[in-house]
């Protein structure tokens, strides 16, 4: 006979953002016990793939990249590289984990810079950007030109959310919602079979709610400028850069997608933004529920 379940919410900080797990468990100790493996795994992924930690595995990769060498990667990294490759292929080359380097030309702060970087500095950076310039054959990742840089920032948080949901399910948790800075994955509906209610915030004023989405299964992720955007001569740009031109993208400011896996939802949202004006058509073809906010404030709500 199972005990009645109570609602608990555990907040924690990870991957540079506020995270929480909403879980129905038999006791507060029980809830904490079930969430421990998630805290450990998220911390593990942060330590492994953080750009900001000099002893992370990503930093080791980027050291090899800087020197134009090659490096052998483990199975988890290999699968992430394969996933990044699939995103590159499905976005016609626009989704590119080597494009992080371009941020050096821009200054994404709330205040933002108002000047456009000069063509020469962008050109030098663009020469060292491009997934096709990598030689990736599992398990060896080889950098054919020196000075490149990889950034898993666009996929690791969503990947962590999917793994968190799996870790909870494997412990028999059927009613939990994992939220890693807006990347959400659920293990099932709320304890009484009601869906979870997720608030999507307005990208231009994050404290404002745009829409409530009901989620009973799967995942939800968003891409786009919430905290980081720049304004140049009155035009607002997001923080995603076109890997071919080095310029920020226009057209769509933010996208939210619902999918079975958080990593898929997040990649589709990002690729939609990379499609600029073609974001709506791209997401309609994918056949999943979505919400788009365009730079002129229009909302296309198909959730």
């Amino acid at each position: 006979m199972t005990l009645p379940l109570d609602f608990y919410e555990l907040d924690f900080q990870a991957m540079g953002t506020a995270c929480s797990i909403s879980i129905y468990a038999e006791s507060s100790d029980g809830a904490r016990e079930k969430c421990e493996p998630v805290f450990t795994d998220v911390a593990r992924l942060e330590a492994k793939y953080s750009r900001y930690l000099s002893d992370s595995f990503l930093s080791l990769i980027n050291l090899a990249a800087k020197q134009g060498r090659s490096i052998e990667v483990d199975d988890e990294t290999a699968s992430l590289l394969d996933y990044a490759q699939t995103c590159h292929a499905e976005s016609k080359g626009m989704f590119d984990i080597t494009s992080g380097l371009l941020r050096r030309a821009w200054n994404f702060q709330p205040e933002g810079q108002t000047a456009v970087p000069d063509a020469a500095s962008l050109e030098t950076l663009l020469e060292r950007v491009g997934w096709q310039k990598l030689d990736w054959h599992a398990p060896k990742l080889a950098f054919t030109i020196p000075g490149m840089e990889l950034d898993f920032g666009g996929i690791v948080k969503e990947y962590a959310a999917d793994r968190a949901a799996t870790l909870l399910r494997e412990q028999g948790v059927a009613h939990a919602l994992v939220n890693l800075g807006g990347d959400i994955c659920v293990t099932g509906p709320q304890a009484d079979d009601r869906p979870w209610r997720v608030a999507i915030s307005d990208p231009s004023s994050p404290t404002q709610e745009l829409r409530i989405v009901e989620v009973s299964q799967g995942a939800l992720a968003s891409s786009g400028s919430y905290a980081r955007c720049i304004e140049i001569e009155g035009i607002r740009y997001g923080h995603l850069l076109n890997p071919r031109t080095g310029f920020p993208l226009t057209g769509t400011l933010a996208a939210t997608v619902v999918a079975d896996q958080c990593i898929v939802a997040g990649s589709l949202a990002t690729i939609a933004l990379l499609n600029e004006a073609g974001a709506a058509r791209f997401l309609k073809d994918a056949g999943l529920p979505f919400l788009l906010v365009s730079s002129d404030g229009d909302i296309d709500d198909r959730l």
């Binding site: 988890e76 699968s79 996933y83 490759q85 699939t86 999917d162 949901a165 898929v264 589709l268």
Partner: peptide
């Protein structure tokens, strides 16, 4: 596109 991303996603360890 969805099929390709999903197939690649479930190949990741711990993603179901």
């Amino acid at each position: 596109t969805l099929m390709a991303l999903s197939a690649s996603a479930v190949a990741l360890p711990g993603v179901l």
